[in-house]
Design a protein around this nucleic acid. Sequence first.
DNA 1: CCGAAAGGTGCAGTCAGTGCAAAGTTGCGC
DNA 2: GCGCAACTTTGCACTGACTGCACCTTTCGG
Lengths: 200, 200
Amino acid sequence: MTSGLRERKKLATRLALHQTALQLVAERGLDGVSVDDIAGRAGVSPRTFFNYFPTKDDAVVGIDASAVGQAAERFAARPAHESPVEALRAVHAQQAAEMAGEPETLWPLRLRVIDEHPVLIARLHAVFGSAERALAEAIAVRTGTTVGADLYPTLLAAVSGVAVRAALHAWLASDFTESLPALVDEAWDVLAAGLPAPRP
Amino acid sequence: MTSGLRERKKLATRLALHQTALQLVAERGLDGVSVDDIAGRAGVSPRTFFNYFPTKDDAVVGIDASAVGQAAERFAARPAHESPVEALRAVHAQQAAEMAGEPETLWPLRLRVIDEHPVLIARLHAVFGSAERALAEAIAVRTGTTVGADLYPTLLAAVSGVAVRAALHAWLASDFTESLPALVDEAWDVLAAGLPAPRP
DNA sequence: CCGAAAGGTGCAGTCAGTGCAAAGTTGCGC
DNA sequence: GCGCAACTTTGCACTGACTGCACCTTTCGG
């Protein structure tokens, strides 16, 4: 199904561009790398680069909105008896586990590079943002309200993004020694408790 | 103190550029407006435009990080007996009140324009993001931890940004009929309660 | 009124990103 | 195997954001 030669080649090229971009930016910084550099080292023409990513920044971040958008679908598929927060926690647990399953070094490198460049942080936020809009819709359906009429869907969707980003940040801060799923869970514990000041 | 001719002129030019940018983008969309257009109508050279804003997008959003950075200072200045959440709520209440005090139409127009352009949403997030980093430091001080060692400061700082953004979004959705401070407060009520599903 | 400091401007250049049309590849029915 | 249709890659030309530099104009303090 996904195994046409065309499909596989496209996937491979996309990944090659992303990894090349990451590596070069890690070495020289975002401004020290041009699209021509990335395309050249990945073995395609500069023009082709833009068939795969709309901007240079997107190639470095390398996460497409569709992958993140599945969160909303999974949320909608959770059993109806779960509260919104419970359902979200379950979805995040699954996602965090999948991320841990990807090639070892990809996420660490990605996060390190993104963390050093505010522009890329913003890009990452933008990707999350579009996912959160979809999620807000799904939450509204589950709680029987609409996005326009009630704060809750927007708020919870945004908080869910925060939980993941805070966990990713802590993961990076721990130099990837801690468990990502555990960090996500910890973040949700704090959120579900209403953000009480931690005991020192 | 702030009343040198130079100072006032700079402020005026900055505001003129921002308002011109907003107005033009509202009429023609972000891609229908060039920097030359904005500079021309605001009565300065295109080159001068970039003395005031680093990018076209920043001119449209028109919020500089320093203004947002004061949140961290105000937070640090809150009485020590307040919990982090209490202190944040107080800071936000003050900020929301100040925003309501600005020229009537500026925020509505800003929010409408930003909301229509994902790139600008990302820019706004970036501005908030830098403020949140400063805030996280201040929170870490107040709770006796460090940003690297504990999830809490990052998490709470990000949540505070979410509270404001969700309130702004709801304000826009209400066509600016509701009270912004009330919306911010409402968002914090939900957050402080641990995000329980709303009663329908 | 003058000299120093700061802001405004023109110029030339780099690079991101796009539309278009001409190759080059791949998939598929025969 | 063959060849046509569909898709991808690529080169080219162009727009527009953004920058460094050098020069001019305005403001400020004495």
